[in-house]
C-alpha cells in the first residue's frame, strides 16, 4: 500500500463551523482529492462545500497547495508531498 502523507488543511473562518471551530485540520492523501476526502471523512459537514456533487471545485472557493492555485496545477489530481499545506479561501476581489 502506498504510504500516506501528512498534510495540513487551513480553513477560512466561514468554513470553520464544519470542523468544530478548528483553524487547521491534519489529513492524509497523496493527491488533493484524497486529502479533501479525508477532510470529509473526519468532518462530514464539508460534504459539497469545497467539491461539488459534480466532482469539481466550488466556484467561489480557491484552493491553494502551498501558494499555488490548484486550478492551474492538476486540480483535484494535484500531487501532494509530505508537509504540504492546503489553503482553502473564499474568492475575494483584490486591490484596485
Amino acid at each position: 500500500m502506498e504510504r500516506t502523507l501528512s498534510i495540513e488543511i487551513r480553513l477560512p473562518t466561514v468554513l470553520r463551523t464544519h470542523a468544530a471551530g478548528a483553524t487547521t485540520v491534519a489529513v492524509e492523501g497523496s493527491t488533493l482529492g484524497e486529502a479533501l476526502n479525508s477532510l470529509v471523512t473526519q468532518y462530514p459537514g464539508f460534504e459539497g462545500q469545497i467539491v461539488t456533487a459534480e466532482g469539481t471545485l466550488h466556484k467561489f472557493v480557491n484552493v491553494y497547495v502551498n501558494d499555488d492555485d490548484v486550478r492551474y496545477l492538476d486540480k483535484l489530481e494535484t500531487k501532494l508531498s509530505d508537509g504540504d499545506v492546503i489553503s482553502i479561501l473564499p474568492a475575494v476581489a483584490g486591490g484596485a
Partner: peptide, 21 residues
Amino acid sequence: IEPPAGEMVDGLRNLDDGYIP
C-alpha cells in the same frame, strides 16, 4: 500574482459572499 486574502475574508458570512470580478 495575488496577495494573501488575510483577514478581509473573515468578514464573509458564507462562500457565496465571495466575489469574482
